[in-house]
Structures are given as C-alpha cells and as structure tokens.
C-alpha cells in the first residue's frame, strides 16, 4: 500500500509543480514573451523591452496586473460558472502533461490517446461557453464562429496526431498510448517509407494547431476589428488572465505533443545525458513556436467561410489520406 501513497503524492506534486501548474506558468510566460518578441521583430517593431532582461518579464507583469484587478461581473452574466469552466480547461490541459514523457512519472495505459483527445477538446468548449454566458452580441457571435471552426479544425488536429500513434502501434507496438508513442516515435523517422506520411500529418497538425490557438489567419472568433474580442469581450481582471493563461498553456501542451509525436522528442540523444535531452526538446519546442509565429506574421485573416473551406478542402483530406495510408501500409 505504501507504493500507492507514493504514487498519489508523486501525481499531486506533478500536477501542482512540475510539469503542472507552476512549471507551465513559467513556460507560458516564456512562450508568450517569445511569440511577442518574434512577432514584433518580424514587423520591424521592438516588442517588450522594459520589464526584465529584454522584456522577458513583461508577460509576468501583465498577469500580475490582471490578477490583482477587480473581478467585474456584468448584470445578466455569471460569477462562478466561468471560473469553474476556466479551472476545468486548465485542469484538462495539465492532465495531458502527465501523459507525456516530460513528466518524471508518466501515466499511461493502452488506448489512452482517446482520453488525450477528449481532454484536448475541453479548452475549446470552455472558450465557446464563455461567450454564450454573456449577453453581449459580440460574445455570442464570437462563440458561434468558434464552434463553426471547431467542427473543422478539431477533426483535422485529431486525425493528424492519430497518424504517428497508429504507425507507432502497428510498427513498434505502442498500444495506442500517447506516452509510448511519444517515446518510440523517433524510430519512425528511420524508415524512409514513413517519412512522407509523418511530414504530411506534421503540416496539417501545425495548421490546425494555429487554428486551435485562434491565431492569424484563423483568429476569426476574436477578430478585434469586427467583434471586439469575441467570446472574451465582457471578461476582465483575473478571468481574463486565466483566459490568456489557457491560450498560453494550450500552445505549450499542443506544441509539446507535436514535438514528441512528430519531431521525435529527445531524438538524437535517446541514450544521452539528461541535460542534452532537455535542451533538444526545448529547441524543438521553440522551433514549433517560431513556425507558428511566422505563419501569424505572414498572413491576413480569413473570413469564416474561407477558413472552413480551406480546412475541409485541403487540411482534413490531407490528414485523412495520411491516416488511411498509415493503417494500410
């Protein structure tokens, strides 16, 4: 029974500290700073400069400012329900972290990719619900746009991440587990037949992730120039801080999934020292974030019909093709 208590303590510690709440807060601050800085430099701007070294603490300052503001509850709005939904989304994202090799004591079981898929959809549902919980027309419009997009990009993203999982199971016996697939996925790159499949699903995963993160060209639900901030228009103070936190942590978790499933995780240092493994994962993570930022700086926003058309016409069929081939191969 002692083993059981140890396990529980480990899991609690992981949830709260590493790689859970505290660590993801640090990563969220870094990621947000990195995206802002890179985006600004791509546009000939300075980006954050004043707070901390090269502005690294600017996102932290923003969070602190928002956390200590008054929590304004609008008439005909809800006080506790949004908070509950926000907590649920953050919980779901942290639970996925426990299933990745990044955590020292990982949770896994056969077919747990289904659990991961379920948890990945939670943040989206939370954000959509937030808009419908306010009487603002901008909120309702933003949420309906978000749900319209969801039926396209969530499908594409799930199919895309299924491809390496299916391949890992068929060839390496990973039992459809996110953890095992992540550990063995680098072996897929050693087989030249599989490389095109991985690259195709990597591309579709990156594009649908951009949509999942509501970044350009898919920032339609929160298009500032049309519907102010969409679902988040009426939220301020701590709730807004948590909305931004969800965005950052979603970026962190999903980019890590891409790093582990598609880019081989710790790849050249599978047997190597721990610091080298950490460094490799960090570099791959930064590359993924940089690519997403680069897409953001390069394009203008789609209209909702154009985005749906693009996703269903190109991204979903491509990812589906990769998945079908990977089941047959």
């Amino acid at each position: 029974m002692a083993n059981g208590i140890f396990e529980t303590l480990m899991l609690v510690g992981e949830t709260l500290i590493y790689p859970g709440a505290v660590f993801s807060f640090i990563v969220a601050i870094f990621t947000q700073w990195f995206r802002r800085k890179a985006y600004a430099r791509m546009q000939n701007r300075m980006g954050p400069t004043y707070t901390g070294l090269a502005g690294t603490l600017q996102p932290f300052a923003d969070y602190v400012k928002l956390f200590f503001k008054e929590d304004i509850v609008i008439i005909r709005g809800y006080a506790k329900l949004p908070a509950f939904l926000l907590a649920l989304a953050i919980g779901a994202l942290i639970a996925i972290l426990l299933m990745l090799p990044i955590s020292p004591y990982s949770v896994y079981a056969p077919y747990d990719i289904i659990v991961a898929a379920y948890l990945l959809i939670w943040p989206t549902l939370t954000l959509a619900a937030l808009g419908f919980l306010t009487p603002s027309p901008y909120g309702a419009l933003g949420s309906s746009r978000l749900l319209t997009l969801t039926i396209a990009y969530e499908v594409a993203f799930l199919i895309s991440i299924l491809t390496p999982v299916v391949l890992a199971n068929r060839i390496l016996g990973a039992q459809y587990s996110l953890y095992l697939s992540s550990i063995y996925s680098w072996l897929l790159w050693t087989n030249p037949v599989l490389i095109p499949l991985i690259i195709i699903s990597l591309l579709t995963a990156l594009i649908s992730l951009q949509c999942k993160l509501l970044e350009k060209p898919f920032d339609i639900p929160e298009a500032e120039q049309e519907i102010v901030a969409g679902p988040f228009t009426e939220y301020s103070g701590p709730k807004l801080a948590f909305i931004i936190f969800i965005h950052d942590i979603e970026q962190y978790v999903n980019s890590l999934i891409i790093v582990f499933l598609f880019l081989g995780g710790v790849a050249p240092f599978v047997e190597g020292p721990l610091w080298a493994q950490i460094l490799v994962v960090a570099i791959k993570y930064i590359v993924v974030v940089l690519v997403l930022t680069w897409i953001k700086a390069m394009v203008a926003r789609f209209r909702v019909d154009q985005a749906i058309k693009m996703l269903w016409k190109y991204i979903v069929p491509l990812s589906l093709f990769a998945l079908i081939v990977s089941t047959v191969i």
Partner: peptide, 16 residues
C-alpha cells in the same frame, strides 16, 4: 485597411 483585414505586418510596414 491591412489592419482591418487582420494583416498587421502590412500595417506596420506601410506606417514605417
């Protein structure tokens, strides 16, 4: 116009 179409890079470049 670029800003309204969500193309902020264009906005920054023309204003430069």
């Amino acid at each position: 116009l670029f800003h309204l179409l969500g193309f902020d890079t264009g906005f920054m470049m023309t204003w430069l």
